[in-house]
């Protein structure tokens, strides 16, 4: 498809055919690619200012000493790798992100199937209701969950006690605290998977299921041999996207536990905040947050490679 305006004309010897500057400008502006770039320019500028510049600035910061007066190369990264607490944060972030993404994907898949099997007239209200956790601002919903888990006036504990059970130390025991922050993340993120999987399910041709039914396939076989293969790319993309967002999560952990007790719920973002903002060591905070980058880049390479391969197979 041509994206330029053709300006061909026969050139006669001795006749100057060079268009004027004004004509050149008009032709340049008439090109579809030029218009596309111009229309995207505000977005490009916003991304450059709010994403690209801060990203490079944080790389620069991470290579400075504590007082930002001396370039120390990878010194901050080497220092972090020698700290027990940081290694614990790496482990915790991996546990937090992988567990949360797994359960979000699982719950999203199950609920998408349930909603997809409802009569068409009833689907809309269920879709709307299921999306509620995802559309509430995360800081607000985290605060709501914190009140439910509140160490002194926990609503959950009130209910448990009214049925004769013991209180649960939701946020004061490190392992319960880990469970609680993962639970809230799953609650918040599962609707995203639901909506993506529901869209994917709707795009699977009915003829495939009809053919499988004629061949005598049961529901499980249809799911394994038709639904899952048809959804693999969507599953991969959603998992990748969610992995990135969950690895970088800040709000839930900061509001509910602030990394405690005993640093045992810190993730990269909250630990970076503690080092960079609370303790005033911005270079070390920047280095901590940049540790996510290689981990996520490797995950992205593998997942996207799989998506491309399957795309070629289908194509």
């Amino acid at each position: 498809m041509a994206d330029t305006v053709q300006t061909w004309s026969p050139q006669l010897p001795g006749v100057a055919l060079r268009p004027s500057a004004r004509q050149n400008l008009r032709l340049f502006l008439q090109r579809r690619s030029t218009i596309a770039v111009l229309m995207c320019l505000p977005l490009i500028l916003i991304i450059a200012c709010l994403v690209i510049y801060p990203a490079f600035y944080s790389i620069y910061l991470s290579m400075l000493n504590k007082t930002q007066t001396r370039f120390i190369g990878l010194g901050n990264f080497r220092f972090l790798l020698s700290r027990d607490v940081f290694l614990m944060v790496v482990e915790q972030t991996a546990i937090f992100a992988l567990t949360a993404v797994f359960f979000k994907a699982l719950i999203g898949l199950i609920t998408a199937h349930l909603i997809n099997n409802l009569p068409a007239s009833g689907q809309r209200k269920w879709r709307g209701m299921m999306l509620v956790p995802w559309v509430i601002p995360l800081a607000l919903s985290s605060l709501g969950w914190w009140w439910l888990f509140d160490p002194i006036h926990s609503a959950f504990n009130y209910i448990l006690q009214s049925f004769g059970y013991d209180e649960v130390p939701w946020l004061s025991s490190p392992y319960w605290a880990r469970f609680s922050v993962i639970l809230v993340n799953v609650w918040y993120g599962a609707p995203f998977f639901l909506i993506m999987y529901l869209a994917a399910l709707k795009s699977v041709p009915d003829q495939l299921y009809e053919a499988a039914a004629i061949d005598g396939a049961n529901a499980w076989q249809k799911f394994v041999h038709i639904t899952l293969p048809m959804m693999r790319n969507i599953i991969s993309i959603t998992v990748l996207f969610s992995l990135i967002v969950t690895f970088a999560n800040f709000d839930i952990v900061q509001i509910m536990t602030a990394g405690g007790p005993r640093n045992m719920t810190h993730v990269f973002a909250t630990y970076a905040f503690m080092l960079g903002i609370r303790s005033g060591d911005l270079p070390l905070g920047a280095a901590t947050s940049l540790f996510m980058f290689p981990i996520l880049a490797i995950a992205a390479i593998f997942i996207l490679r799989g998506v491309r391969r399957r795309g070629r197979e289908i194509g």
Binding site: P151, G260, P261, R262
Partner: peptide, 20 residues
């Protein structure tokens, strides 16, 4: 109380105000 390990700066305030 065992929950002191999860208290933020408002935790002790709530504790004394609650009367417990």
């Amino acid at each position: 109380p065992p929950e002191v390990y999860a208290w933020d700066d408002a935790g002790n305030n709530r504790w004394i105000i609650s009367g417990k």
